[in-house]
Amino acid sequence: MICSIFFFAPKVFSQGERVEALRAEFIKKKVEMNASESEKFWPVYNEYNDKVRALRRNVRQSFKKAPDNLTEKEAEDLYQLDMKSKQAEADVHKQYGDKIKGIIGIKKLALLRKAEEEFKEILVKSAKEN
C-alpha cells in the first residue's frame, strides 16, 4: 500500500530536484567556470538558494494560512513579515553576491545573473504550456 502511494501519486510529491538539476546544467553551460571556481562556487550558491527559498516559502505559507476574515493585527503582522522578508532577501542577495563575486569575478557574476534570468524565462514558458 505504501509503495502504491509513492508510485501512483508522483504529482503530489515535489519534483524540485529535477528543476534544480536542470538549472545547474544551464548555469554550467552559460557560465564557464574552471575547476577551482566551480569547487567553491556551488556550495556557496546552494546555500544562497536555500536561504532565498526559505524566505519565499515562509511568506507564501504565512499568507496561505491566513484566514479571509483576518483582523487588523493579523494583517499588520503579515505586512511586517512580508517587508522583513523582502529586506532579508535583499541582504542575502548582497551578502552572497559579494561572496560569489569573490569566487568567480564580476564578469562571470553578470553572466550568472543573465543565465538565471534566461532560465526563469524557460520555466515561465514551460509553466504556461503546462
Binding site: K11, S14, Q15, G16, E17, R18, V19, E20, A21, L22, R23, A24, E25, V52, R53, R56, R57, R60, K120, I122, L123, V124, K125, S126, A127, E129, N130
Partner: peptide, 20 residues
Amino acid sequence: IPIAPKKATDLNLKSVQDLI
C-alpha cells in the same frame, strides 16, 4: 544525485514556485 531532464517541458508549477 539528481539528473537533469533533457527539456523543461514536463515540470509542474509546484516545483518552480520558489524560483519564479
